[in-house]
Design a protein around this nucleic acid. Sequence first.
DNA 1: AAATTTCTGATTTACGTACCTCAAATCCTC
DNA 2: GAGGATTTGAGGTACGTAAATCAGAAATTT
Lengths: 341, 341
Amino acid sequence: MKPTVHDIAARAGVSLATVDRVLNGRPGVRAPTREKVEAAVAELGFVRDVAAANLAKSRVYTFAFIIPANDNSFMMGLRAELEAVRRWAAQDRISIQLIDVPAFDADALASALDAVREEQMDGVAFVAIDHALVREALERLTESGLAAVTLVSDLTNSARAHYAGIDNLAAGRTAATLLGRFLGRGDSPILPVAGSLQVQDHRERLEGFQSVLQEQFPERVLLPVVEGGDDPVRVEALVAQAAADQPDLAGIYSFGAGNRGLIRALAAFPQGRRPVTIAHELTSVTRAALLAGHIDAVLNQDAGHEVRSAIRVLKAKADGAGVVIAQERIRIDIFLKENLP
Amino acid sequence: MKPTVHDIAARAGVSLATVDRVLNGRPGVRAPTREKVEAAVAELGFVRDVAAANLAKSRVYTFAFIIPANDNSFMMGLRAELEAVRRWAAQDRISIQLIDVPAFDADALASALDAVREEQMDGVAFVAIDHALVREALERLTESGLAAVTLVSDLTNSARAHYAGIDNLAAGRTAATLLGRFLGRGDSPILPVAGSLQVQDHRERLEGFQSVLQEQFPERVLLPVVEGGDDPVRVEALVAQAAADQPDLAGIYSFGAGNRGLIRALAAFPQGRRPVTIAHELTSVTRAALLAGHIDAVLNQDAGHEVRSAIRVLKAKADGAGVVIAQERIRIDIFLKENLP
DNA sequence: AAATTTCTGATTTACGTACCTCAAATCCTC
DNA sequence: GAGGATTTGAGGTACGTAAATCAGAAATTT
């Protein structure tokens, strides 16, 4: 039978009240007594029954999710997942508050983080922007004992407890391998289409892509990266322009949003001359394009997994418990027409 | 505030005891009274606090995992994951019993299922074998109210509550697309290496592979499938034999175990003449081969995910609760050298 | 040695649900 | 409308932990 606080009390030869004081870090216990209790805990392998404890405390975990008010499909999908997870989370006494901030706005993000800190919640998940203001706000946050998790976009070398997102360097490298191998031999050029190089994830994807292309497919010409600003209209224009400039355009790696424009531009290519294309994020648009054969592969991060993972990690931190690391690793999903969910 | 049984009682104008009788399906409540309570439950949106209920019941969920005593890396990995998940599960009052059965033995599996039924557990997860005996045992199992989940290998058209495994048809199709595109144009032959065609998952992988190859790469020659029986020594011999018979062997799709033998055979190829190779299941062997460039891609099913998913589903069934379907879908992971975890 | 401060024990209530008992109310049957 | 059977109410205890109070013991100071 699993040991309870009563067993600890008996074993340590102290009262329940003292065990409670030790377990919950309350004052008024001398060091020798505290050690007796801790020894008993260790010997019996006591682990507090979190469910019972939460019941007794009527504890409700409150987590904030700070999401940029971006209207691209991926962010909308992320919101949808968050919404879907709410009911499920409510069962576990987890209350999730969604906070919108303007996209790519470090100021706004920093203030949102500060606001969360003042509300004394149990944890925050946020889509990071690499900026001094954000770093400082995060610093203040963790110093007041809040657990913070970065979502989708990381803040390396910061105090965040966890990053729920993919390795974007690896994603870029994967795209390069796939594209290079799909293309075979030749030197016809490849066009990289970014959303914005201001964002760390896009920079990393490009970096990974470039490095593998140089290593493994050195004969390939890599055109200068173009930035579509996650805007379908701009993306379409940029790709059309590149097609006009480079009649033998062989491949496209699109690692930002705005794929609706990309697809439109691809449709304009003459039959059989369409460049091999790899895009990011499985949405209704990319899914349809994959099925129609307009694009060749989609690299994806599972927004649902990211959200659930963030919640699990935040809860574990709040409970002072551990996590199953493997479960929290966000995979780079590779989708071909054949393995679409 | 979330409604409690007390709120239900007040709202329905009955006592706590009656609410309890209704909620737990105990006898001694007249239909009109029962309906009053049910109406109150619906109106207030009451959901039983499972944590508190389990505490009161001192409930322990007992689940059985029936795993074939196969010594291949995948099954060993599955065991390891199961073991790792035990501690985590114990926190949630979940006790997991591991039951070994001889591999590919329908008799043994059926008796194991029957044994589980007699022990009155809360649920079973098992690696299915498609055989009448197993189907009948499963039938008996579900009739006695036990939830059953198939793991890794499914039993279609059966009473299992869920299948925690990948879509093997899609896996075969994915492998064909990848291999076909990696190879480019040409008609040099491809060798399919199965473990055993007695097993449903291997048959499905082959079927998917064949169909996509015919549709999309009709010029490719597909050699007759060879069966390595998941045995490295046999696999090595078979591949070596094929290499001797087919000097221009272009590709290999290995969709069974015994990949150690496959790798050894591949190492024997002259530099630059090695066939493009796709294998199944990421293990230390395939991982090393991927990194060394001996094979080109690995399709994988995440054993940890499968185990955790099975447990989540079994628990949900035991609680009469729902599941987040998207979370329980097992992905076909595609690993290249570049996106290895 | 007395006074004070600091620890510790004993006990109680609470969380939300399950499950039990016993008495009272209501129903049905004749 | 009496008899028995069934249904309902009231109340308690339990699960494992948190948190509080208060009295008493031990340590420390004066």
